[in-house]
Design a protein around this nucleic acid. Structure first.
Length: 735
RNA sequence: GCUGCUGUAGCUCAGCUGGUAGAGCGCGUCCUUGGUAAGGACGAGGUCAAGGGUUCAAAUCCCUUCAGCAGCUCCA
């Protein structure tokens, strides 16, 4: 017996072996026709499947249920794969899941697919949809299933079964016409339910998301129940693209990037600089209130500093090459890097090559060498030769016979050389401000704040407008605290981030706890420190009642962190504010304070940046406001619009008066028609326009036009000044 | 870094299978002196990303480099 509890609260009973479709038919013919899938105890399955015995919560899903879209898209992925297989013989299928608004299928094709093929593929898909063939589910025991996919010449699926499903007794398949795919489902009853679809883009993706595995082609597409929904979705995408900070940044003259200056290096134009300056003043005032001490430190530092902190050895390939005063040292440095990596995995090898190429240095014939040992030998001979030519005598290096001791000998020499690094982080500099005087527990917390500019050599494919750059300024601070202060300081910093976000109306963010991946070797420090720190973060976030996700592998290399993550206009995640807890750098730098017991103790560090970086924050802010900034941030707060040239005199008087009150005002006194001047001011997203003509001049008033509110009527100048000063003082958000 | 796509006037883009460059907006000059999102006329402006190759001939075809876009991998 199958007992079903329907959404309306009624309970119905059916004999065993009843399918959801039968139940739907029993309820009503129209429902059965409209049915897409079914939710049994919260789990979505096919309509055609037999319902299990027992009592279940039961709900038929139709086009109206958002969950149905996911089922539809997954089925459409099958249709797309089927069409591709018809057109491109020898295609291997990988995975084809549905995402939030779209779906993809990863495939491997002997003849590469390009966007030019989209019309053909879509045409073929249309034929399949028109035929409205059903999706039929069947199961096979593991061995038979493996034989079936092997028979279908789907090598990737065979691999997948071997790697993941060894303990599954049986596997499910879906058949649609000639097309059979290993698949968990669920699917729509038949292809005719697909009302509208569109192929969107093609991109590379690694097999099982592993960059050491083969790269596949990923076809992105989307599907809806109706053409109208599809068009709405496409329009929405177009609208979102108009908020793109790269587009608005150009339009509103906020920032520029020049290939001659370098990709990923932001040029802040005057308009953008005004906004940045306002933001910096805002946060500086806040920090002064909260007991921070502003400091300044240089843009570069000795290599030795970053060897101590770990930045240089751990993140070498993500930095600009080091600057050595002796040219040969740069090359020997690379030799040392390679030798120190020793017999390491493919990934580190790739890192080395990447880095060596960046520095225009790869030992002769290096890439042809077959084994690691040969490569190491080649590097060694090269280093040896260089030492000879430069007449550098390193007895330790000559005596050494293995890579490790060769690396050590080189490192010892390199450490004596003068070498600098563009700073990748501010912490080592701030640490040395802490160390510059003796600290007592009475001094703690020491809170050092700086808008510190750092440089990181991000991969070319990662660069993106202002959100991912190679030089950026963090609104950084480092706190040196006692163990007792951890909780209160963490709490204060999270509250600061929230305060900053609130002030700007940034409400659409998520909180992510970044923990270390215990399997990875990139993290420094003792296990117990990590565990303490991670536990402390969870406790605080919980006590603040925040929703959060904890993600392994998202920690900084020295400690766990709390990140505030927002989405950009096309849905990509970006980390803004961050608070990080660090037990490791204090150890590496041997930091101390004298406790009440007159003994030396180790402080704990907190790294934090409420904005993250000025560049990324600005980029996100541009998109958040769609370029229409609140009055306090707007580069131009007021535009004066004279009705004709007769009123320019009056315009200049109003301009002078506003300027004397530090309002950012510009007079548009050109002899154009005011309609045109208003339009221009609207497109420049100026918060206030003041129209000045006969009546205003006579009465000493200004006709106020709000960017969003339109004509607000004429008021005395003083009244307008009071209004805008209030907007600025309260940091009023755009209406 | 990888896969695919793109690079033509300040901006957005057209320029079919090779025959020597175009539009709209913007900009400049002049006319127009106006009441809440585009008044009119005329004009200037391009080493077709850079370098190399194929060809009688290249914006167009091929190669390399640089830069950008989407995705993947990465992200202290």
């Amino acid at each position: 017996m199958v007992t079903l509890k329907l959404p309306d609260g009624s309970v119905k009973e059916y004999p065993n072996g009843t399918s959801a479709f039968k139940v739907a038919e029993g309820i009503g013919k129209r429902l059965a026709q409209a049915a897409i899938a079914v939710k049994v105890n919260g789990e979505i399955t096919d309509l055609a499947r037999e319902l299990p015995e027992g009592e279940h919560a039961f709900q038929i899903l139709t086009e109206k249920d958002p969950d149905s879209l996911e089922v539809l898209r997954h089925s459409c992925a099958h249709v797309m794969a089927r069409a591709v297989m018809r057109l491109f013989p020898g295609v291997q299928l990988a995975f084809g899941p549905a995402l939030e608004n779209l779906f993809y299928y990863d495939i491997q094709s002997p003849t590469p697919i390009s966007e030019e093929d989209f019309p053909r593929i879509e045409e073929e898909m249309r034929k399949i949809v028109e035929k409205a063939e059903p999706f039929e589910r069947f199961e096979r025991p593991l061995a038979e299933a493996r034989a079936l996919v092997a028979d279908l010449k789907q090598q990737l699926k065979v691999e997948h079964i071997d790697e993941e499903f060894q303990h599954h007794p049986s596997l499910s398949f879906y058949r649609q016409g000639e097309f059979i795919d290993l698949c968990r489902g669920p699917h729509i009853p038949h292809a005719g339910k697909i009302g509208a679809f569109k192929l969107l883009s093609i991109a590379g993706a690694y097999w099982k998301n592993d960059s050491s595995r083969q790269q596949l082609q990923r076809l992105y597409a989307t599907a809806f129940f109706s053409k109208k929904d599809l068009d709405e979705y496409l329009d929405k995408i177009e609208e979102a693209k108009k908020r793109d900070h790269r587009v608005l940044g150009k339009q509103l003259k906020l920032f520029a990037i020049s290939p001659l200056v370098g990709s990923g290096l932001i040029l802040w134009m005057p308009n953008g600089s005004i906004i940045r300056n306002e933001l910096e003043t805002f946060i500086k005032d806040e920090l002064t209130q909260r007991g921070y001490s502003p400091v300044y430190t240089p843009h570069i530092g000795r290599l030795e500093l970053y060897r101590t902190s770990g930045h240089f050895p751990y993140y070498r390939d993500a930095q600009f090459p080091p600057m050595y005063t002796r040219p040969a040292a740069g090359t020997l440095d690379l030799c040392q890097y390679r030798l120190s990596l020793g017999e390491l995995d493919e990934k580190r090898e790739t890192e080395f090559l990447q880095y060596a190429k960046l520095a225009y240095f790869v030992p002769p014939q290096y890439e042809q060498a077959a084994t690691q040992a040969e490569k190491l030998e080649m590097v060694h001979r090269y280093a040896d030769q260089l030492l000879g030519v430069m007449q550098i005598d390193l007895p330790d290096y000559r005596k050494a016979t293995d890579s490790k001791s060769r690396s050590d000998a080189l490192l010892k020499w390199l450490s004596d050389q003068e070498g600098f690094l563009l700073k990748p982080m501010n912490c080592p500099h701030h640490i040395h401000i802490y160390k510059a005087e003796q600290r007592s527990y009475r001094d703690l917390p020491v809170r050092l704040a700086e808008f510190g500019t750092v440089y990181r050599y991000e991969q070319t494919g990662e660069l993106n407008g202002m959100t991912r750059v190679r030089g950026f300024t963090q609104d950084d601070a480092h706190l040196f605290i006692t163990p007792e202060q951890v909780e209160s300081e963490l709490r204060a910093n999270i509250e600061l981030v929230l305060f900053v976000f609130r002030s700007l109306g940034l409400n659409d963010y998520r909180v992510r706890l970044g923990f270390r991946d215990p399997k990875s070797s990139k993290y420094v420090g003792a296990d117990e420190d990590w565990n303490t720190a991670q536990a402390a973060l969870v406790e605080i976030v919980k006590s603040l009642g925040m929703n959060y996700t904890a993600e392994e592998g998202e920690a900084a290399f020295y400690g766990p962190k709390i990140d505030f993550v927002v989405k950009d206009c096309i849905g990509r995640d970006w980390q803004l504010g961050t608070v990080q807890l660090d037990y490791n750098l204090p150890k590496r730098f041997n930091l101390e304070y004298i406790g009440a017991d007159n003994a030396a103790h180790r402080p704990i560090m907190i790294h934090r940046a409420p904005f993250g970086s000025m560049e990324r924050f600005m980029g996100i802010l541009i998109e958040h406001f769609a370029g229409a900034f609140p009055v306090w941030l707007a580069p131009e707060q007021v535009r004066l619009i004279t009705v004709s040239e007769k009123f320019v005199e009056y315009g200049k008087k109003v301009e002078a008066e506003l300027k004397s009150r530090h309002v950012r005002v510009r007079g548009d006194f050109r002899p154009d028609k005011m309609g045109a001047k208003i339009r221009e001011a609207q497109m420049d997203k100026i918060p206030y326009m003041l129209v000045l003509g006969e009546k205003e001049q006579a009465a000493g008033t200004v006709a106020v036009r709000g960017r969003t509110e339109g004509d607000l009527g004429a008021v005395p100048i003083a009244e307008f000044i009071a209004r805008i000063e209030n907007d600025i003082a309260t940091k009023a958000l755009p209406r």
